[in-house]
């Protein structure tokens, strides 16, 4: 029983970060309809910003986090302005190829600047875990879960409760009408991509110190983010959050009770099942198809 409780705690901690990865991508992939292959590298970028700011500039850990988010926002805006804006209106394949190119170029850049050897970030949290009866969890991970939950709520409110969010939704439903209503469409494109990117960077900045930081760290994260978005339904923030927790649960229980060798396969088995039985994702309205 205590083992099961520990798996549930692990699932909560892991699911929070998966959810964060998922909502960033669902904004870009789901709402903007850009197959964003740079999501993983923005995650990596966020983690390296943490490393630079904490270890090379000597800034406090908690101040470094917002800096990484801002850096992710700026890099995202730069990608949108330089690559996506000239391609707006071209077909999804062209954009996808350009994004694959950007991913490879940026990953090679990271390798060139920082080298292939993993780096780690020291944190101000105590090494001794928080023990709650039969289960225990590290303080750093609790902090990551709390920060992820906060970012998810802020993003949800931003999309669903603010004028900017309303303009974003309107723009990607019907650009022309939104533009006639006085929405600055160019600005909405850039800010949506930048917000999605800053969420990826935030996930990297939070998880980099939990794990280790290396140029390819974003690859697996990006694959999982795509899985979560598909699971939750394109463009659905609540769906992405729940999708993140479902993936984490499948991985934890799969590794704990089936076989740890197939841990990463568990999530994808669920995705395949979802795509067969409910191809629009678990939480999307059926009208999104086609």
């Amino acid at each position: 029983m205590s083992e099961f409780l520990q798996h549930l705690i692990n699932m909560l901690v892991l699911g929070g970060t998966y959810a964060l990865l998922g909502i960033g991508l669902t904004l870009i992939f789901g709402i903007m309809n850009v197959v964003n292959f740079t999501h993983g590298i923005l995650y990596t970028f966020g983690a390296y910003i943490m490393f630079i700011v904490v270890h090379q500039l000597g800034v406090n850990f908690f101040l470094a986090l917002p800096l990484a988010v801002v850096a992710g926002w700026l890099l995202g805006a730069a990608i949108e302005l330089s690559l996506l804006r000239p391609l707006r209106g071209s077909d999804i394949d062209t954009t996808m190829l350009v994004m694959i190119g950007a991913w490879i170029a940026m990953q090679s850049g990271a390798l060139w600047i920082w080298g292939g050897v993993a780096k780690s970030v020291t944190t101000p949290f105590p090494e001794a875990p928080l023990v709650l009866g039969p289960v225990s969890v590290s303080w750093l991970r609790l902090f990551v879960l709390a920060a992820a939950a906060m970012l998810i709520v802020v993003t949800y409110l931003l999309i669903n409760r603010t004028k900017l969010g309303c303009a974003m939704r309107a723009t990607f439903q019907d650009q022309d009408t939104a533009s006639l209503m006085g929405v600055n469409v160019d600005l909405i494109y850039t800010s949506t991509f930048a917000i999605g990117s800053s969420l990826a960077a935030a996930a990297g900045a939070l998880l980099g110190p939990v794990y280790v930081i290396f140029p390819q760290m974003g690859d697996l994260a990006a694959v999982k983010a795509f899985a979560i978005v598909i699971l939750g339904g394109l463009g659905n923030i609540t769906g992405a959050v729940i999708g993140g927790f479902i993936l984490a649960l499948a991985e934890e229980l799969g590794a704990g009770y089936v076989s740890s060798g197939y841990r990463d396969a568990m999530g994808f088995l669920i995705i395949i099942a979802v795509l067969i039985f409910k191809p629009t994702g678990l939480f999307a309205r059926s009208e999104r198809v086609g």
Binding site: E3, H7, L14, V212, L220, D264
Partner: peptide
């Protein structure tokens, strides 16, 4: 015998099982 993928970064599930 618990296994982990060469690129895996989160071994909590395996370790929770080994703890028990």
């Amino acid at each position: 015998v618990e296994t982990m993928d060469q690129g895996a970064q989160d071994m909590s599930a395996q370790l929770s099982k080994l703890k028990g």
